[in-house]
C-alpha cells in the first residue's frame, strides 16, 4: 500500500507537469481551433529567461527571494511577448487560410524557436539552480514528494482555477467564449476578435512560462529541446481530457501521469509510453471528444 501511495505521488508530479503545459495548449485550441505546436517552445524560452535572469542577479548578489520573483515575472513577460509576436507573425496572416496551413506554420514556428535557442545559447544541458529552498514542513513526507513537487501541484490547481474564473466570470472571458463559438458572429456584435486572440496567446504563453520556471527547477537542467517532448506529452494529455476544456486538460494530464507511473512501478518502464498511448486510443474509441470534451456538432 505504501508503494502504491509513492507511485500515486510520482504520477501526480508527472501529471501536474503535463497539466501546466497542457492548459495553454487547450486554451488556444479552444479559441481558434489551432494546435499551437510552438507552445512547448514558449515553455522552453520561459525556462531559459529565468535561467539567464537568475545568473545575472546571483552575480550581483541579490537576495534569494527577490531573484525568484524577478526571474519568474521577467520569464512570464518575455514568454508572453514571444507568444504575442508569434501569433502576429505566424498565425494572424493565415487566419482565413485552410487549417492545415496554420498547422504547418505552427510546426515552422516551433522549429524556428528551437534552432534559434540552439544557436543563440548552446546545445548542451545547462544546470538550472534550485531557486526554492526546501520547505521544512515537507520533511516528513520527503519520500513521497519534495518541495518542487508540492509547488507544482498547488500552482497547477491555482492556474486552473484562475483560468476557469477568467473564462466563466469576466468580460474578457465572455468575449473569448463568444469568439470560440462563432468568430464572425462575435465580430458582428462588436467584439475585437483580434485583440481577444492576442490576449489568449498572451495568457497561454504566461502559463507556459510559469510551467517553465517550476519544471526547470524541479528537473534541474534545461536545453533547447525540452519543449518538444514535454509539448508532445502535454498535447496528448489535452486531447485525452478533451481539447478546449480546462478541467479536461488537467484530468487528461493526471490520467496520463498516473498511467505512466503505475505502469513503470508495477510492470516495466520500457513500455510506459506504449501503455500510455494504448490507454489514449481506448479512451478515444469510447469518448471521441476526450474525457470532458463536449461532443458538439461539427460545423459544416
Amino acid at each position: 500500500m505504501e508503494y502504491f501511495i509513492e507511485l500515486f505521488f510520482s504520477g501526480l508530479t508527472r501529471g501536474s507537469i503535463y497539466a501546466l503545459i497542457a492548459l495553454g495548449y487547450t486554451m488556444v485550441y479552444g479559441i481558434i481551433q489551432l494546435i499551437n505546436f510552438a507552445h512547448g517552445e514558449i515553455y522552453m524560452i520561459g525556462a531559459f529567461t529565468a535561467l539567464i535572469v537568475t545568473g545575472v542577479l546571483t552575480y550581483y548578489g541579490w537576495p534569494h527571494l527577490a531573484i525568484i520573483l524577478i526571474a519568474a515575472v521577467l520569464a512570464i513577460f518575455y514568454s508572453a511577448a514571444y507568444g504575442w509576436t508569434m501569433e502576429r507573425i505566424a498565425y494572424k496572416p493565415l487566419r482565413d487560410a485552410p487549417r492545415l496551413s496554420a498547422l504547418i506554420s505552427a510546426i515552422g514556428a516551433s522549429l524556428f524557436l528551437q534552432n534559434y535557442v540552439l544557436l543563440a545559447q548552446t546545445s548542451d544541458f545547462l544546470p538550472f539552480p534550485s531557486l526554492i529552498s526546501d520547505f521544512a514542513f515537507l520533511d516528513p513526507v520527503s519520500n513521497l514528494f519534495g518541495t518542487t513537487d508540492f509547488l507544482i501541484y498547488t500552482t497547477t490547481g491555482v492556474v486552473m482555477a484562475l483560468l476557469t474564473f477568467l473564462i466563466k466570470f469576466t468580460r474578457v472571458g465572455k468575449a473569448m467564449r463568444a469568439t470560440a463559438q462563432d468568430r464572425h458572429m462575435a465580430m458582428l456584435v462588436g467584439i475585437d476578435v483580434n485583440r481577444i486572440i492576442s490576449i489568449t496567446f498572451i495568457i497561454g504563453s504566461a502559463t507556459a512560462a510559469i510551467g517553465g520556471v517550476l519544471i526547470a527547477s524541479h528537473v534541474g537542467q534545461i536545453n533547447f529541446f525540452i519543449g518538444f517532448i514535454a509539448g508532445i506529452k502535454a498535447f496528448v494529455a489535452a486531447v485525452l481530457g478533451g481539447i478546449g476544456s480546462l478541467p479536461g486538460a488537467v484530468l487528461g494530464s493526471l490520467v496520463l501521469g498516473w498511467t505512466e507511473a503505475f505502469f513503470t512501478g508495477y510492470v516495466s518502464s520500457d513500455y510506459e509510453d506504449v501503455c500510455a498511448f494504448v490507454i489514449l486510443v481506448i479512451i478515444l474509441i469510447f469518448r471521441p471528444s476526450g474525457l470532458l470534451g463536449r461532443s458538439g456538432v461539427q460545423k459544416v
Partner: peptide
C-alpha cells in the same frame, strides 16, 4: 533491468521502484 524514456520530465516512479 529496465529502460527509461530519455527526456521525460520526471523519474520519480522508477526511483520508487529502485527503492522498493
Amino acid at each position: 533491468f529496465e529502460g527509461v524514456t530519455p527526456g521525460a520530465v520526471d523519474y520519480s516512479a522508477i526511483v520508487q521502484k529502485i527503492k522498493r
